[in-house]
Design a protein around this nucleic acid. Sequence first.
DNA 1: TAGGCAATAATTGTATACAATACTAGGCGG
DNA 2: CCGCCTAGTATTGTATACAATTATTGCCTA
Lengths: 229, 229
Amino acid sequence: MASTIKAKSATADDIAAQLSDAVHQHRLKPGAKLREDEVSEVFGVSRTVVRQALRAMAFEGLLTIEKNRGAFVAKPTLREAHEVFQARALLEPSTAHAAAERTTPADIALLEQHIKEEHEALDRDQPGLALKLSGDFHLEIARIADQQTIEQFLKQLVSRSSLVIALYWKRRNALCESNAHHALVDALRNQDGRAAEDLMKGHLLDIYSQLDLREYDEGSTSLKEALRK
Amino acid sequence: MASTIKAKSATADDIAAQLSDAVHQHRLKPGAKLREDEVSEVFGVSRTVVRQALRAMAFEGLLTIEKNRGAFVAKPTLREAHEVFQARALLEPSTAHAAAERTTPADIALLEQHIKEEHEALDRDQPGLALKLSGDFHLEIARIADQQTIEQFLKQLVSRSSLVIALYWKRRNALCESNAHHALVDALRNQDGRAAEDLMKGHLLDIYSQLDLREYDEGSTSLKEALRK
DNA sequence: TAGGCAATAATTGTATACAATACTAGGCGG
DNA sequence: CCGCCTAGTATTGTATACAATTATTGCCTA
């Protein structure tokens, strides 16, 4: 985890993964432009590969590509924000239910490790990292449920949620959701599908209810700076 | 609708749309290879643009791209087949419910036109076209519900459903679902959300229950032939 | 004859060169 | 002083050339 940039020939997936991480952790903020030249220089590959990565990210909703203008970190509208959480509300509760019925002790250990890292990130004053880990927690549940298709959709939704939070979160500092995650792990450990489903529903409503109309304060972000983990 | 191929400079989206159509209508069958050279020749553009189109389709699950080997029409496993319909079961009923509460007379007219065209396609012995129209019907309901995010997911799921049907459908000829679509339109016309939700649930279960384990009979498909509408 | 190896052909992956478009700055006229 | 137009610059879009990989064919040997 030392160097962000691989010595030679990063693949399109690598680039997309690292850029996605930067977006998830809010090192690249909504509206930030990603110039192909700049990215290709940073990763030491040609624009051809960079364009593949950028298009893949655009497909996931992380970027918006405007013809002849370039790729920008997406700025979900308020409408999209609502839609994202409505979709999550449809998918995640029943997925949590299914997960509860398949959870193994190894899964529990993994989830608890996840929560622990999340807390450590908060303690170290890395809210971006904590947010990313929080999102991964939700993906992990889909993985436990053994639903690859839904997990794939959820990956997109969690990504967009990160953008939504960057734009519309009321209180920047307080991530009061760790308790919800703990409770979920308990339900999974007890293989209590009904409880997991309800907890997830409530958890999503919690987050959703904390969204706000406040307008985003534009600020330029340096790409190289953002990639410097 | 005369010529499939635009005279000059088809865009990547055009190519993806036409190829997707061919897949939806089973003119390109699961497993068929799409060589970049061939596609670029057919559409009169360079491989650069073709690759964009192919990658976009791969992202939707219509194609599988194997490194250094090429792009093939996807062959969903039985597991994926189940997952696709499980995901649809989560998304579509509540979407139909929402749609019922927003349906306008214009929407009803559009849906009825849709069903009519589907019947005509069947009468003209174009089951592929009928299947595509049937899929579009479901997407139209998501559009009426005014849920763009879910509509986007559903687009992928309907696409994959087409592949699943190509591989795992029990009886090739019988598309006995037109009644279900009629009933859905009735529920929408009456703005009866509950009925629409239940009908959609039953409709999806109907389709799902007709899936089969039968293995697919490999057959080569000419690209140029398939694109000849 | 069957199996494996080698050379060749075919195809995809990547980089680069060029074209088209959008942005920026400076000058000109009002 | 402001606005518009124009020329130049910067950036993205597309095509092409080359490299790397895979598939195929024919030959040789057991």
